[in-house]
Write a protein that binds this DNA or RNA. Structure first.
Lengths: 168, 168
DNA sequence: ATGGATGCAAACCATTTGCAGTGTA
DNA sequence: TACACTGCAAATGGTTTGCATCCAT
């Protein structure tokens, strides 16, 4: 990591520290290392990759602490997930160009079309990464049904969105 | 389904029939029903949802046939998957607005920025679906590393992308 | 008829959870 | 000190696979 990246990581760590104290969660050794790992990686690591990396510095961490911490960071808004959340793979037979709206709460997934979005080009930097097959816009939010049922725990309830509250 | 949708489904079924014969895969009762289900659903069903629906018409289908068929359809290019493929959830500490390039072969995920894409608005139809939290562009393709190693089976090799060929 | 496809049941593997011990605030 | 957090180990649940049987071609 170069100097600028290091600054970014430090800034993120600070954000974590203050978020943690104001949310009343404890700042443990392992949480710090887990967050540092995600914050300083360019790889979008999954739980196991984080685990492997952190274990080098904290040989006793367990994989379940990694999972718990990552979801906690997600709940604190310090981290995002890539792709659909705690869900199984979904299939889509619509081969026409289209985009998706995804409810992060219940997993609802709906198509939408947009001439504007279809016209998008991808920047040159992307071409360098590899061949491009498809370009899709993914809009995430809370669907109206879930918003209507805005009840219950503020903390992420375990398993939310996987099977519970099946859309439609 | 209205008349136009029915036509779409029939067209997709025909496409399946010809793709199947030219690829030399057999056109079974259950495959037809599985494809019909995905092709006529607006729900982006996951494997289990397809299973439940098909079972009403073909009470003996098994969940593993559903899985096998869905991936086969994917290999044939008749179906797409939503979100990252056979992968575990990945995390991302980059909270700045950004987009993703994802290699469908090895699962590599990289950020990229684009002022043009950041300026996107979402169509009104989406507002009706629910509140919008984030808008991201997901570009899928084959990364240069995978393209370079363009060896081996044309058929999807099982487990590809999950653990094998860990990027970087 | 015959090789690919299915269904079954067992295997797999990532992720989650209950619990007793541990460490932070 | 007290309560949240950790590590362990066992449970869970979605997905995959080996194999004997079946059926499109």
């Amino acid at each position: 990591l170069n100097k600028a990246d290091r600054l970014t990581v430090d800034c993120r760590l600070d954000r974590f520290r203050s978020a943690a104290s104001s949310a009343g969660v404890k700042l443990t050794h392992q949480r710090l290392e887990i967050f540092r790992e995600v914050a300083s990686s360019l790889e979008h690591p999954d739980a196991e990759a984080v685990f492997r990396a952190v274990r080098r510095r904290v040989p006793t961490v367990s994989i379940d602490t990694v999972y718990r911490t990552l979801w906690m960071l997600n709940d604190l808004g310090l981290v995002t997930t890539l792709g659909p959340r705690r869900e199984s793979v979904r299939f889509d037979a619509n081969l026409d160009r289209h985009h998706h709206y995804i409810c992060v709460r219940c997993g609802l997934a709906r198509d939408f079309d947009s001439a504007e979005l279809d016209a998008l080009g991808v920047p040159a930097a992307v071409q360098a990464m590899g061949r491009v097959i498809t370009t899709q816009v993914e809009v995430r939010g809370i669907c109206s049904r879930c918003a209507a049922a805005k009840n219950r725990t503020l903390k992420r309830n375990p398993r939310a969105g996987s099977r519970a509250a099946t859309p439609r």
